[in-house]
Amino acid sequence: MGLAGLAGIINAAGFHAIGHFSSHLSGTVAVLSEELAGADWGLALLAVWVTVCFIAGAAATAVLMTWQRERHLRGRYARCLIVEALLLAGIAAVDQFIAPRTQGLISLRVLLLWGGLSFLMGFQNAIVTQISHARIRTTHVTGMITDIGVALGQRVAHWRHPDWHLPSGFARSPVRMHIMTVSAFIGGGILGVFGYRGLGPAFLLLIAAALLAVGLYDLARRRE
Rank of each mutant, 00 (worst) to 15 (best):
113 L>C: 13
108 L>T: 15
108 L>P: 15
126 A>K: 06
105 L>I: 09
123 F>Q: 06
110 V>A: 12
131 I>E: 03
114 W>C: 12
108 L>E: 14
83 V>T: 11
98 I>F: 06
94 V>I: 15
126 A>R: 09
101 R>Y: 05
93 A>V: 15
119 F>H: 06
131 I>S: 01
94 V>M: 09
87 L>W: 00
122 G>M: 10
123 F>R: 06
99 A>T: 14
90 G>K: 03
112 L>P: 15
90 G>A: 06
123 F>W: 05
87 L>Q: 04
97 F>W: 14
94 V>R: 08
89 A>S: 08
129 T>A: 14
82 I>V: 13
107 S>M: 11
117 L>H: 02
104 G>S: 07
90 G>N: 08
92 A>F: 02
104 G>Y: 01
117 L>P: 06
107 S>Q: 13
117 L>F: 05
83 V>R: 01
106 I>V: 14
91 I>Y: 02
92 A>I: 05
90 G>D: 07
126 A>T: 07
89 A>P: 05
87 L>G: 07
130 Q>L: 11
86 L>S: 07
99 A>K: 13
117 L>W: 00
125 N>E: 08
126 A>M: 13
90 G>V: 15
120 L>M: 08
124 Q>A: 08
112 L>N: 14
96 Q>W: 05
118 S>F: 03
98 I>N: 14
101 R>G: 13
123 F>K: 07
99 A>P: 03
98 I>A: 14
89 A>D: 00
93 A>R: 04
85 A>W: 00
82 I>H: 00
91 I>T: 10
104 G>R: 04
122 G>F: 02
113 L>I: 15
121 M>L: 10
86 L>R: 03
104 G>H: 03
116 G>E: 11
105 L>D: 03
106 I>G: 10
121 M>Q: 08
122 G>I: 12
82 I>M: 12
93 A>P: 03
82 I>A: 01
123 F>I: 10
112 L>E: 14
81 L>W: 00
97 F>H: 14
81 L>F: 01
128 V>G: 04
87 L>H: 01
122 G>W: 01
99 A>I: 11
114 W>N: 13
113 L>G: 09
106 I>K: 09
104 G>M: 07
114 W>P: 07
118 S>R: 11
116 G>T: 12
89 A>R: 01
111 L>I: 15
110 V>Y: 03
131 I>M: 09
108 L>S: 15
124 Q>V: 09
97 F>Q: 13
120 L>R: 02
109 R>I: 12
93 A>Y: 03
124 Q>P: 10
83 V>P: 02
100 P>Y: 05
105 L>N: 02
94 V>G: 12
93 A>E: 10
82 I>T: 02
